[in-house]
Design a protein around this nucleic acid. Structure first.
Length: 576
RNA sequence: GCACCGGUAGCUCAGCUGGAUAGAGUACGUGACUACGAAUCACGUGGUCGGAGGUUCGACUCCUUCCCGGUGCACCA
């Protein structure tokens, strides 16, 4: 796509510039990095800001640009024949390519590898381990899990577009004192609940009840802790109960992941690391990092951070201990070149500490560990709490969206086939897009009205454009042409081609910054460009060469839309 | 108190490593379905980019400082 064009242009410009001016440092690489995609097409397809050259050449930028434009226009180079104009504009050198050239590049790259539009090979031979959507056993998934799930899955998809080998990891929260508490509750009150008929609801009810009663009865927490110790020592009865909890919960989460079309490759709950904790502690001890402090064992981290707590006064391990073991597991056994944690911003300090400890341990790969933080959901009513049972449940949001879409279909397209399926695809698409379109570090205010809005910048808008493309192709009646016969020169067509060519860069940028919203925002831009084209120009029934050329453009658009939606884990229905 | 993250149109948000006249959606007003799907498009109203300094040819973007909001700060995860 445009990536290749930029490279070629940089080479061209660098040879011309270095033969014309005597400049110390302007490599092809530097030039490639300096080349910009202007915001507006009137500034060309690629622009080179010459300002940095001004000092060395002792000339005003507009003069340099003017001089360069003349030289580049005269220069002979394989690329010359593809360039329509090289014009100076202030301190910028604006390069515009011939429409036929870009059109050909677009079509070639869209058809190059089926299903892999915009892919790159940057990550080839490397493995990325990504930990996402890891819920805590016995707690229902609420709206906050949407982010951990959807952002994680999107980054996972993005990693695949960059050619990485991807391992999606479910770091299930299946260990800790709360399971002692829950087991205690189960043994004492379990019979009051319908565990056969409604296992997960019962489990959650026990959880809420335990915390309610613990506020009144101060001994309850201690009883729970005692049961957890039994669990840690491998008590058969408690272990059996615990396994049951995990199973019930996984079944419930599986249902939710199924709805969202999310999947992991590996489940490695916190309990998985139990038999590795001793080794971590020993390693820390051998490396003289472990220090006793107030009865606990910690790793001091310097002035700017509180110490990392490794072992409690009572000898038990902690969150950080398990994460250290997990990080080593991911590096040593899963062979992670990149280790990503998609976890809320409230864990920022924790991960900073863990990564710092890894550094102190001498693990150079600590730099390849990244906490991909996302902001919290806020509510007008105040903070949400699972313990108090005051929550917006993920499933309710999804169901609500599907129901609203279903009503909309009834009004707009009552004879639609697969209505149920489409309502699901569109409803879920709306929820996912609403979440993915905003920068992940921001807190978001959950707003039912906005999440369930299907007009304007939204998932259904993007899906609708895809449906439109498909509808055109259906009416066209033949497979879409694989080439653009004539030059499409209207502003709308040129803008659409230009936007489509950016797709590959967008994927790369979204992955390197771990920000799926870059893709989502791009999708909106692309849809707007397509819409303007569609509304302005007739496609079917035009003269043969015009019709086929525009149809080829429609199909190219459709493929990029489909690929982009897939990256965001949103379905592209055929009709809606 | 210290640390990290946010503050852009009435509201919800974009703005890529500093680049050309700060953009969408929504809301409000107007127009476009006897032509390819109106979940659409076009036009209009709406801005001291939290405040103040600084760096730079150029700052929403970088630095300093202050204000507001969020989050975190040792035996939970």
């Amino acid at each position: 796509m445009l990536t290749n064009v930029r490279r070629a242009t940089a080479e061209f410009l660098s040879t011309v510039i270095s033969s014309h001016f005597s400049l110390a440092s302007l490599t092809t690489e530097a030039l490639e990095a300096a080349l910009e995609v202007p915001k507006k097409l009137e500034h060309g397809h690629l622009a080179f800001p010459v300002f940095p050259l001004a000092k060395e050449l002792k000339k005003a930028p507009p003069l340099i640009a003017k001089e360069l434009a003349e030289v580049v226009t005269k220069a002979e180079h394989p690329l010359s024949k593809e360039i329509a104009s090289v014009l100076p504009a202030g301190g910028f050198l604006n390069v515009t390519f011939k429409d036929a050239y870009l059109q050909k590049i677009l079509i070639d790259s869209v058809y190059a590898e089926p299903g892999k539009v915009g892919y790159s090979k940057k990550g080839e031979g490397k493995t990325v381990v990504i930990d996402y959507s890891s819920p805590n056993v016995a707690k229902p998934m609420h709206i906050g899990h949407l982010r951990a799930t959807v952002i994680g899955q999107a980054i996972r998809n993005l990693a695949e577009t960059q050619g990485y080998n991807v391992i999606g990891l479910n770091h299930l929260g299946d260990w800790g004192v709360q399971f002692g508490k829950l087991a205690w509750a189960y043994m004492n009150w379990g019979s009051e609940y319908d565990f056969k008929g409604k296992p997960f609801e019962s489990l959650y009810a026990l959880y809420v009840r335990f915390h309610d009663e613990a506020e009144k009865d101060k001994d309850l927490d201690a009883k729970g802790s005692a049961v957890f110790r039994q669990l840690e020592q491998g008590d058969a009865q408690v272990t059996k109960i615990w396994k049951e909890f995990v199973e019930i919960s996984m079944k419930e989460y599986g249902r939710m992941w199924g709805l969202l079309d999310v999947s992991h490759d590996l489940v490695r709950g916190e309990s998985f690391y139990n038999n590795r904790l001793k080794a971590v502690e020993k390693e820390l001890e051998d490396k003289k990092l472990l220090v006793e402090s107030e009865g606990a064992m910690v790793v001091p981290l310097g002035e700017d951070m509180p110490p990392c707590l490794i072992r409690k006064t009572d000898g038990a391990s902690l969150y950080a201990t398990r994460d250290l073991a997990s990080a080593e597991y991911r590096h040593n056994e899963l062979k992670a070149d990149l280790n990503l944690y998609v976890v809320g911003v409230d864990q920022t300090l924790h991960f900073k500490q863990v990564f710092r400890v890894l550094e102190l341990m001498g693990h150079v790969w600590a730099k390849d560990c990244h906490h991909i933080a996302f902001g919290m959901y806020r509510f007008k009513e105040g903070k949400m709490s699972t313990r108090r049972g005051r929550t917006v449940f993920l499933e309710d949001v999804i169901r609500q969206a599907i129901e609203m879409v279903d009503k909309l279909i009834e009004a707009k397209n009552p004879n639609l086939e697969n209505r149920k399926l489409v309502a699901e695809q569109v409803g879920i698409g709306a929820i996912l897009f609403n979440d993915l379109a905003v920068d992940r570090v921001r807190d978001v205010e959950f707003d039912w009205e906005k999440a369930l809005n299907f007009e304007g910048d939204s998932g259904p808008y993007v899906q609708y454009m895809h449906v439109r493309c498909l509808s055109l192709i259906r009416k066209y009646g033949k497979p879409a042409p694989k080439s653009i016969a004539i030059e499409l020169t209207s502003p709308e067509e040129r803008e659409l081609v230009r936007t489509l060519l950016n797709y590959q860069d967008v994927l790369a940028a979204a992955f390197t910054t771990f920000r799926p919203n870059i893709v989502a925002q791009y999708m909106l831009e692309l849809c707007a460009a397509f819409s303007r084209f569609y509304n302005k120009h007739r496609i079917l029934g035009e003269a043969e060469d015009v019709q086929t050329s525009r149809m080829a453009l429609v199909e190219a658009t459709r493929r990029v839309l489909e690929a982009g939606l897939r990256t965001l884990n949103i379905q592209a229905p055929e009709a809606m």
